[in-house]
Design a protein around this nucleic acid. Structure first.
Length: 616
DNA sequence: GCCGTTTTCGGCCCGACTGTTTTCAGTCG
């Protein structure tokens, strides 16, 4: 039996959150119906149409498939509710024509799309799962079904055991063996298994270091979704620049200790499966090709397609080796990314936003945000010391570390007393206050504020009492428990904390741990409204397993002009002060403008903002 | 299925690798 709509779907938690925010707003604004599809729900239907249409068309590159995908992407990134537009208005959206507009209208009016239902009936979930086996694409899946009656992965495995695949024209023992191995590696997830960025970054760094040992290799850097700073990674793409023999780089690569399986081994391109089943692709290029190679392998695919279209409009073609003239092939640009973008009359676009969700248009119009850079940060506003149960750096060391980085202000924010294992007693805080007075004298250029990371209780209250909190100079408030409350309760909880004068920043808003724990359910739009009304900043937490608030929420916040942010490392060990770069990259991914980040502000303006909030 | 200031029809991004082929289809990113 078919699942009820919206039930049991698996989506990244950030997308779910975002979807929920739209859904919650819809339910609040329109009392009459509870099932108005959000933009992400519409997009999800269109993505599913694309996926199934790929099977019907026999290719993921079929024009109809790409048309659905383009429309889905446009709607996913659209700031307003598409459901409220007329069909004529919808067709003004990029990639949405009459046919798609009427399908969206059908979805809004009836809750389903007839064409999608037909496709679902024709390609049941078990069959679609076949195409998640690496090496099995739409053509193969359909053939397996038509010629061998294979309807799902189990059927396929059984057919391989009977050596049936090798007898099909165009297939042989090798293909059969490859698919057998692919199913074994699948573990139920296959092509859609994604790795948290914190793990992927570690593996990528290790591999790049090994590649740098190969003679002739000048650089080795991760590209793809890792460079775009997505919070989960499907596979790792690495470009190595070599002035030596590329085949030597390749043979070293496929022999690395991390390699569990070699899935491709060519002169310029190889792919291996490494620890935890994570695939790593390596490309070797020459120095003169680096810029175009970076553009190409950073993606996203959709972003690249837009760039290539722009190249074609100019009589050029863009590939991984160069931007060059179609006639004659002379190179227009290839050495640097900047040169490639400039030739296409665009400013350089940061990798973090290359998703074809409006960045090309914004770049063309000159309306990209002023992106944050590490050197813009003038302070860190979430820092623990070894007084916190989970802190591993002394107060003196972390203050010195901040001073070394040229910071003009710093908030020490050890855990509040309600976090029983990690938190500080009032007595400890009073003692810390005396030490801080001396440190403030020692570092006259930097203002060190005594703050705390307060725990937001289920009712929105925080640690200590109002009197004691007045004695603190700064407050970060975070959810550390009761993750399972419903959205209404969580939203009210966070809103109450934001209204507390002792709270300057909401720490790691959703509480998610990427790949381990989903974020709490929130009405994001309501939270943003309260943030705006109270002047409470949203933290951009730099920890790679948090990256919280997620980019989707940051971008949503940027659609308003009244929410501010704080890029904070949440340091527990001295070296974590360097994690600021992660927050900077997350901020870019959320299209955050520098002017809205409170810890880029000069000392005086920053301190005024802190005091204004605390005076209620 | 979408799109258009040369176009309402005829285009639509590009290439490496693999396995099975004697020149290419399928898959992948």
């Amino acid at each position: 039996m078919r699942k009820a709509k919206g039930e049991g779907e698996t989506l990244p938690s950030a997308v779910l959150l975002f979807a929920f925010s739209l859904f919650a707003r819809a339910t609040r604004d329109s009392h009459m119906l509870a099932l108005v599809p959000s933009n992400s729900e519409i997009a999800r239907n269109l993505y599913e149409m694309a996926r199934l249409a790929a099977l019907a068309e026999g290719s993921s590159n079929a024009f109809r498939v790409r048309a659905y995908e383009t429309a889905a992407r446009t709607i996913d990134g659209h700031p307003d509710r598409v459901e409220q537009l007329s069909e004529a208005e919808m067709t003004r959206l990029r990639g949405v024509g009459k046919s798609t507009a009427s399908k969206i209208r059908e979805l809004v009016d009836t809750g389903s799309i007839a064409r999608l239902e037909e496709l679902r009936a024709r390609f049941p979930p078990g069959f679609v799962a076949l195409t998640r086996v690496p090496g099995v694409g739409p053509k193969t899946a359909v053939r397996l079904h038509d010629e061998l009656g294979i309807a799902n992965v189990d059927d396929l495995a059984a057919a391989i055991e009977r050596n049936e695949l090798r007898d099909l024209p165009g297939m042989g023992e090798k293909t059969e063996e490859n698919i057998r191995n692919a199913i074994e590696r699948l573990g139920g997830a296959g092509k859609e298994n994604r790795t948290p960025i914190i793990e992927a970054i570690r593996i990528a760094r290790e591999v790049c270091e090994e590649l740098l040992e190969v003679p002739g290799v000048r650089s080795a850097e991760p590209m793809g979704s890792l460079r775009r700073f997505r919070d989960t990674i499907g596979d790792i793409d690495i470009i190595a620049v070599s002035t030596g023999d590329p085949e030597e780089v390749m043979s070293r690569f496929v022999e690395l200790p991390i390699v569990r399986d070699v899935v491709g081994h060519g002169a310029r391109k190889s792919a291996i499966v490494g620890a935890m089943g994570l695939q790593i692709d390596l490309r070797v290029v020459e120095p003169a090709q680096y810029g175009s190679a970076e553009v190409y392998f950073t993606g996203s695919k959709a972003h690249n397609i837009r760039l290539r279209q722009m190249a074609l409009d100019r009589g050029w073609t863009l590939n991984e080796y160069a931007l060059s003239e179609i006639d004659g092939g002379s190179v227009v640009a290839s050495k640097t990314e900047e040169a490639v973008y400039e030739a296409l009359d665009l400013p350089w676009i940061p990798p973090e936003i290359r998703e074809d969700t409006g960045e090309i248009e914004a770049a063309r119009a000159g309306s990209l945000p002023a992106f944050v850079r590490v050197q813009d940060l003038k302070g860190d506003l979430h820092v623990h010391t070894d007084l916190s149960g989970d802190g591993h750096v002394s107060l003196a060391d972390v203050v010195a570390g901040a001073a070394e980085r040229g910071y003009r202000y710093l908030a020490i924010t050890d855990h509040g007393e309600n976090l029983t294992i990690n938190g500080l007693t009032r007595h400890q805080l009073l003692a810390q206050r005396r030490v801080l007075a001396r440190l403030n004298t020692k570092y006259p250029d930097m203002v060190i504020l005594q703050g705390a990371e307060l725990n937001i209780a289920p009712d929105g209250s925080v640690d200590y009492d109002a009197d004691f909190l007045t004695g603190l100079e700064f407050g970060v408030a975070s959810v550390h428990s009761h993750f399972g409350l419903d959205a209404a309760a969580q939203t009210a909880r966070v809103a109450t904390a934001m209204r507390n004068p002792a709270v300057n920043v909401i720490g790691h808003l959703t509480g998610r741990r990427i790949g381990k724990r989903p974020g709490i359910d929130l009405d994001v739009d309501e939270v943003l409204s309260v943030a705006a009304a109270t002047g409470c900043a949203l933290e951009i937490n730099c920890h790679l397993d948090r990256l919280d608030a997620p980019a989707e929420i940051l971008r949503r916040a940027m659609e308003r002009d009244d929410v501010v942010f704080a890029i904070s490392t949440d340091t527990h060990r001295l070296h974590e002060l360097d994690n600021a770069i992660n927050g900077v990259r997350l901020a870019r991914r959320g299209w955050v403008d520098r002017s809205r980040v409170v810890n880029t502000w000069p000392q005086k303006r920053f301190l005024k903002w802190v005091r204004d909030k605390r005076s209620g």
